[in-house]
Amino acid sequence: MIIQKISRILSNFDNILPLFAAACAVMSIITLISLPLAYHEDQLYPKRIVPGSTLNPYDRGGPPFTQAEIHSQYPENSPTAGYVTAYLTPFSLFLSEYTSYMGTTIVAHPGGILDEILYNTRGLDTVVEPTILFIAFAIAAYIFRKGGDE
């Protein structure tokens, strides 16, 4: 019986990954065939480069402590969206005034468009993500501590 044969192959778990990889490979081919896909022009959180700004490539506008405009999905759900982007800590303010190539450092320092997205508008993503990190590292640490003594 063919079903029996299939189930015998599947019951050996060494065959699981090759099978899944084959399915993914087939799926990649299907995606390649279906390809030219239209890129939707009206994206959330668009990128733009302000020429000459010291905050390049992350200048999203807004003087300090006034709300900048953020193109988010549900603006009514996050009333403070835009404040974080406009805010510069004293240190980032210093950097932005005296250097012109530190935009990435400034935006990664608290206050910037990415903090806006990661903590404020899409905060739940970031909650789940450190949880995955926590679980995976807990597994590694547990096995590391207990795996040796048998």
Binding site: Q43, L44, Y45, P46, K47, R60, I113, L114, I117, L118, R122, D125, T126, V128, E129
Partner: peptide, 11 residues
């Protein structure tokens, strides 16, 4: 290619 892309790459 948007700011959203970066917010998705980090996780």
């Amino acid at each position: 290619g948007t700011d959203l892309a970066e917010a998705l790459i980090l996780p």
